[in-house]
Amino acid sequence: MTQQIDTANHAEHAEHAAEERDDDAEIVVSASDLSLAYPSSDEVVVSCETLRIPNGEVTALIGPNGSGKSTLLKALSDHLHPREGTVRVDGRTVREYDQKEFARTLGRLSQENESPGDLSVEDLVYHGRYPYRGFFDGVSDEDEAAVERAIDLAGVEHLRESSVGDLSGGQKQLAWMAMVLAQDTDVLLLDEPTTFLDLNHQLQVMETVRRLNRERDITVIVVLHDIAQAARHADHLMALQDGEIFARGSPGEVVTESLLAEVFEVRAEVQYEPELRIHPQQSLTRPE
């Protein structure tokens, strides 16, 4: 009899453990009780209790200007020390990682990037291999293969020999994208990669993101300005307002007329069929 209970107990335990493991495997980046502020001021810019980014999916952060999207991204990529709380990547806190090891796990492309104007696109992409190379190491076959793959994925083969300084804004963004791709990370953070780009390059960037996610199973966290774009390309949306997560879920769940009114202060009609579309009507903030 006791034997039976034991077995039952054991099974229950195992089941529970499996559930937990499953849960962990699905979440790649997480944070708890996060409170973010910049060193120069006391004002807390972002605070959120739990943040869980599902593995292998595209998560888009949306929200009005100053809602803390970029700040949150900086904290996730260890560019900003959280005032409170911890960020975990693959179950380990960010502090536990060696710097280069972290750069092999998580890559981040910031909003604006600068480089010497005469740097060639190929050389720029090779810099993406920095976390794989020792202090004195040359270029390995593996580095070369990763660079070729990244150039191919970002679609910048025709720009390979061009100088970064001669490229248009959109081409530049794709070149930088290729550099981050050469980092060969499991997680990719992109801070407004499509802002300032023309429509064609916006689509190229988002298609690259999609391709990465599908073909290489990379988890992408992307800050987007354009809600419609976010709804179209992301699996998950997170809407931020005043540094707090206001809503999260699938695009259909998050993008609602009431959210647009409350978070973005616009009156808009949302059309769900045949695909999600937003028709903005008017601003709800009146000029004083």
Partner: peptide, 23 residues
């Protein structure tokens, strides 16, 4: 001459250099 590649990465800006795992 040994640190020339490190200097090249520094030229990409602090933000990028840190993202690439440079101390």
């Amino acid at each position: 001459l040994l640190i020339s590649r490190q200097l090249n990465v520094l030229l990409l800006g602090e933000d990028t250099a840190k993202s690439l795992g440079m101390s």
